[in-house]
Simulated scan of single mutants.
Amino acid sequence: MNLPAPPDFLTITYRPDLQVLVVRWQRLISVAEMQQGYLVLLEHAAAHGCRRWLLDGRRRFNTDREGAQWMVSTFLPQLQPRLGGRTYLAYLLAPVTLRDQDADAAFPPPAYFLDKPFLGERFVEEGEATRWLLRQP
């Protein structure tokens, strides 16, 4: 496979035994870096036909409305056409991030995902996030 190399602030590992793409943000990032990282991630997901993603943002530690708006309006609508089905995104976050009002407001509420071809959920424990992903089709 001729895949783009992840930028230095991101690692991407495909776990064929679980059929999960494990993505780890390595540091704080700008919105432009977030966009770049997600676009590279999509290329890797498409190459592996993988619609279950574990997104470890514990080191990234930043979520903002501008980045969330880009995700909702530009990035997430690309998933179904590229991956051919519903994509499941398990976000692994530091507990303090879940208590941050701005970060919380940037993440869509559960009802948002009901009729979408993607589903996102937040976790603080990697095992729980992985188990959730493995329950998805």
Score class of each variant (00 low, 15 high):
32 A>R: 10
73 S>N: 02
19 Q>I: 13
6 P>W: 04
114 L>W: 07
63 T>G: 05
122 R>S: 15
113 F>D: 05
9 F>R: 04
35 Q>F: 05
137 P>G: 13
59 R>G: 10
119 L>A: 11
7 P>A: 05
110 P>M: 11
22 V>G: 01
62 N>C: 07
102 D>A: 15
106 A>Y: 03
137 P>S: 14
41 L>Q: 13
109 P>N: 00
6 P>R: 11
7 P>C: 04
130 T>P: 04
107 F>A: 02
54 L>W: 02
37 G>Y: 05
86 R>E: 15
83 L>S: 06
97 T>L: 14
52 R>C: 01
84 G>Y: 11
137 P>V: 04
68 A>G: 04
79 L>A: 00
84 G>C: 10
5 A>N: 12
85 G>T: 03
100 D>Q: 10
31 V>C: 09
51 R>D: 12
97 T>P: 04
14 Y>F: 15
113 F>W: 14
18 L>I: 06
135 R>T: 06
27 R>T: 15
102 D>T: 15
72 V>R: 13
119 L>M: 07
17 D>G: 00
102 D>C: 13
41 L>D: 05
43 E>I: 02
38 Y>N: 07
91 Y>Q: 14
135 R>I: 01
6 P>E: 06
37 G>D: 03
132 W>D: 11
115 D>V: 01
72 V>G: 13
131 R>Y: 05
114 L>G: 00
55 L>M: 10
92 L>E: 06
122 R>A: 13
26 Q>N: 03
132 W>I: 15
66 E>N: 01
89 L>R: 08
135 R>Y: 08
95 P>E: 12
27 R>Y: 10
55 L>C: 15
34 M>T: 04
65 R>C: 01
115 D>T: 09
46 A>F: 10
27 R>A: 13
67 G>V: 08
61 F>G: 13
124 V>I: 13
36 Q>A: 11
18 L>G: 01
76 L>D: 06
16 P>R: 00
44 H>C: 00
42 L>C: 01
25 W>L: 01
126 E>L: 03
95 P>F: 03
69 Q>N: 01
8 D>A: 13
124 V>Q: 02
18 L>T: 00
45 A>Q: 07
55 L>F: 05
51 R>C: 12
68 A>K: 12
34 M>N: 03
131 R>C: 05
28 L>M: 10
35 Q>W: 03
17 D>F: 02
82 R>Y: 07
57 G>C: 07
